[in-house]
Amino acid sequence: MPNEMTADLHTHTNCSDGTDTPQQLLAKAKVAGLTTLGLTDHDTAAGWDEAALNVPAGMRILPGAEFSTKHPAPDGTLVSVHLLGYLFDRNNAEIVAEWERMSSERSNRGTRIVENLIDADYPITLDRVREIAGRTNIGRPHIARALVEAGSVDSVGEAFDGLLNDEGAHYVALQSLSLENGIRMIDAAGGVPIIAHPRARAASSLLTEEVLESLTKHGLKGIEVRHPDHDDAARTELTGIAIDLGLIQTGSSDYHGENKVLQLGQERTPDDVVEQIVALGCTAPFTKQ
């Protein structure tokens, strides 16, 4: 039925800043009653192959990624905007080159944040943060967990609100590609670009209807309307904007395992909207062989 909602299209594994392996994530998605899952680790498709081999019966996986981008505010300040891309060609030369650059950038950034905290006498070590990060580059959730472990903060959320905040003294910014180029790049690779949580954090005041309309000219296909960081007013506003601009409306948990207090499937996308995304992408969803 068109109004059923059994899809969560924004999740993370330990291939970026989540704590579940792709296989563990899919098993949890099955238990949560999901029939479609978007696998969207940050700037990587490293979890795609493991996910493709472990799709539970009756489920399908939309392979994707969350791209790190920035867009200028009216005063010229570059603001971080997260961009979801689905069902694109992961071997696209431009995407491969961007991800290689971002991997190096993220690794250096994570190390510098840890060093800044150590210099400020916080009792963490680079070796321990690397252990926590495991198979991926050091990210802020890994640093936050080290700070919790060391007793410097009580929770990962507290670390993000304070020591690891974008405006904090220890923060180091990522050098990201422009939002316009990110949208164009995903579109050119046969994918479906959708802006993640447009009313969360610094991007909230930046992504006006006028800005979103300008981005449709570069290939923007949708916006994430239902997200844990969006209150009722934001959802109502974004629904109106999406209708005005003819954009796809998605809903997602932004699940990160133990790194965030979010439940898999707590926000969902209608099944008929998933079909629209599948029809637009060049890569087929993963299903059980």
Rank of each mutant, 00 (worst) to 15 (best):
V55N: 05
V55Q: 04
P56H: 03
P56S: 00
P56G: 03
P56R: 05
A57D: 11
G58R: 12
G58M: 10
M59Q: 05
R60C: 13
R60D: 09
I61D: 04
I61M: 09
P63C: 04
P63Y: 02
G64S: 03
A65P: 02
A65R: 03
E66T: 01
E66M: 00
F67Q: 08
F67N: 03
S68M: 06
S68W: 01
S68T: 12
T69A: 07
T69E: 08
K70F: 11
P72T: 09
P74W: 04
P74T: 09
P74L: 08
P74R: 09
D75W: 12
D75F: 13
D75G: 13
D75T: 13
G76N: 06
T77S: 14
L78R: 03
L78V: 00
L78A: 07
L78W: 06
V79K: 01
S80H: 12
S80L: 12
H82R: 01
H82T: 03
L83W: 09
L84T: 04
L84K: 06
G85W: 08
G85F: 09
G85T: 09
Y86D: 01
Y86Q: 06
Y86V: 05
Y86L: 06
L87P: 07
L87W: 00
L87M: 08
D89T: 01
D89K: 08
R90W: 10
R90I: 13
R90G: 12
N92Q: 13
N92C: 13
A93D: 10
E94Y: 12
E94L: 15
E98Q: 14
E98R: 12
E98C: 11
W99Q: 08
E100C: 07
S103W: 11
S103Y: 12
E105H: 04
S107G: 15
S107V: 13
N108M: 15
N108D: 15
N108C: 15
N108G: 15
R109D: 06
R109E: 08
G110T: 06
G110N: 00
R112P: 10
V114E: 04
V114T: 01
E115I: 11
E115M: 11
L117D: 06
I118N: 03
I118P: 04
D119N: 14
P123R: 00
P123D: 07
I124M: 09
T125A: 08
L126G: 06
D127V: 14
D127S: 14
R128P: 02
R128W: 04
V129F: 07
R130N: 10
R130P: 02
E131H: 11
I132W: 00
G134F: 00
G134I: 05
R135G: 14
T136H: 13
T136Q: 10
I138W: 03
I138T: 05
I138Y: 07
R140E: 09
R140G: 05
P141A: 08
H142N: 10
I143M: 10
I143R: 00
I143Y: 02
A144L: 12
A144T: 10
A144Q: 10
R145I: 07
R145F: 01
A146L: 09
L147V: 09
V148N: 01
V148R: 03
V148M: 06
E149R: 05
E149G: 02
A150W: 00
A150G: 05
A150M: 09
A150E: 00
A150C: 07
A150T: 05
S152N: 10
S152M: 07
S152L: 00
D154P: 08
D154M: 13
S155D: 11
S155F: 08
